[in-house]
Amino acid sequence: MKIGLTYDLRSDYLAAGYSEEATAEFDREDTIAALETALVDLGHLTDRIGHARQLVGRLAAGDRWDLVFNIAEGLHGIGREAQVPAILDAFQLVYTFSDPLVMALTLHKGMTKQVLRDAGVPTVEFAVVAGPEDVRALAFPPPYFIKPVAEGTGKGVSAASIVRRREDLGAACRNLKTAFQQPVLVERFLPGREFTVGLLGSGREARVLGTMEVRLLAGAEPQVYSYTNKAQYEERVAYRLVRPGEDWVVARSEELALRAWRLLGCRDGGRVDIRCDAEGRPQFMEVNPLAGLHPVHSDLPILCTALGIPFVQLIEQIVASAAVRIKACPLPRKQVLQAHAHCHRP
């Protein structure tokens, strides 16, 4: 297949003056190179497209692909991860990972938790705080855990995310909202074990790949898988492969993760993060349907390495999952484009 690659290259945004933290979710050149190498090794032709605006330019020039391997995070707005999928849907081009609805929903952590809570998935008490009135209306007691409602890679998460007194919550939320210009998700703090569950596939074909327990080392910011801890994971974090047959908490976490993945309609591959409450019961934290794919530093490939799965095999399975949708296109793309042109003739 001819596979186009859509992505946001971190170095481009740093050169344009964006900060290290603002570009934390974007990909490094070696991630794109590793992905391209894996696809070529699998027998595909690759074409680097780039970010959303570059994609628009290529489409306007008439370029098309059999499949687009999309890892573009987007830059502006809570729906930014939906931008590239929406453009590709408009041209009836098949792409990896989730559709615009799922991407927009799951980046908003509060809405995601509301959907899953209403479906009966265990998730700790939470509220989205947009102003002082929301703090006053909060119905559950401290300690709290706060983070921006629509960021990834641990952005905005630090030791200060744990707020132990209600009287400190207003100022803490105000500071975070000012820093990230978005509402704040407030959850009851979960003191227990933390897991990240890898998943592959879509719908009923989705399955759990495996689970890692996230353990903070002595030099880490305590009790929180923070932005700094993630950035310096080699010194601050230990990832331990855990098995459902050996630990009922892991088994329950994997059941919860797979149920959330299917309920949300996530596709092809990604991660669900789980943390346990004081009684050791797993609770849904968040889902990442556009997980990092650096072959060494990203959580999903780290999990694959622990399982003995080569990076190229991970990419192969993601492509195979997405390629099923190529056969499902209702009309050949040429016919769709011809029909569209006919409808707009004067």
Results as ranks from 00 to 15, higher is better:
3 I>E: 00
282 P>C: 00
333 R>P: 14
160 A>D: 14
280 G>A: 04
63 D>T: 12
223 Q>C: 08
137 A>E: 13
324 V>L: 05
335 Q>G: 13
39 L>P: 06
54 Q>D: 11
190 L>R: 10
171 A>P: 13
296 V>G: 05
154 G>C: 05
282 P>N: 03
215 R>P: 01
114 Q>I: 10
132 P>L: 09
308 G>P: 02
246 E>G: 09
258 L>M: 03
50 G>S: 08
46 T>N: 09
252 R>V: 04
197 V>K: 02
231 A>G: 04
316 E>T: 09
106 T>F: 01
131 G>K: 10
223 Q>L: 10
43 G>M: 11
287 V>M: 10
278 A>E: 15
308 G>Y: 06
198 G>I: 00
14 L>P: 05
27 D>L: 05
196 T>K: 14
28 R>Y: 10
101 L>S: 09
169 L>D: 07
140 F>P: 01
226 S>Q: 08
161 S>G: 10
255 E>R: 06
197 V>I: 15
268 D>C: 08
238 A>D: 15
73 E>N: 08
18 Y>P: 03
47 D>Y: 02
70 N>C: 09
217 L>C: 11
18 Y>I: 03
173 C>V: 15
52 A>V: 10
82 A>W: 04
61 A>Y: 04
270 G>L: 05
244 P>F: 09
295 P>L: 03
12 D>V: 11
276 C>Y: 06
156 G>W: 01
46 T>V: 12
286 E>A: 03
313 Q>K: 15
213 E>P: 00
165 R>M: 07
145 F>S: 00
164 R>E: 15
273 D>N: 08
332 P>D: 14
308 G>K: 05
107 L>V: 07
136 R>W: 13
11 S>M: 10
127 A>G: 09
18 Y>T: 04
8 D>Y: 03
3 I>R: 00
15 A>T: 15
320 A>Q: 14
42 L>T: 08
209 L>I: 07
174 R>S: 14
206 A>M: 02
274 I>N: 01
343 C>S: 13
165 R>C: 04
124 V>M: 13
46 T>F: 07
47 D>C: 02
33 A>P: 06
134 D>R: 01
268 D>Q: 08
226 S>C: 03
249 V>P: 06
99 D>G: 11
221 E>Q: 10
228 T>E: 14
101 L>I: 14
337 L>V: 11
35 L>N: 00
251 A>K: 15
21 E>Y: 07
31 T>L: 04
190 L>M: 15
269 G>C: 08
168 D>Y: 03
196 T>N: 15
92 Q>N: 13
41 D>T: 14
103 M>H: 01
206 A>I: 02
138 L>A: 11
221 E>R: 03
326 I>S: 09
82 A>T: 06
241 L>C: 05
88 L>Q: 01
70 N>V: 09
59 L>Y: 02
159 A>G: 15
314 L>Q: 01
284 F>T: 03
21 E>A: 07
155 K>A: 03
8 D>V: 02
313 Q>G: 12
190 L>T: 09
223 Q>N: 12
344 H>L: 06
38 A>G: 11
188 R>N: 08
67 L>S: 00
114 Q>N: 12
190 L>Y: 11
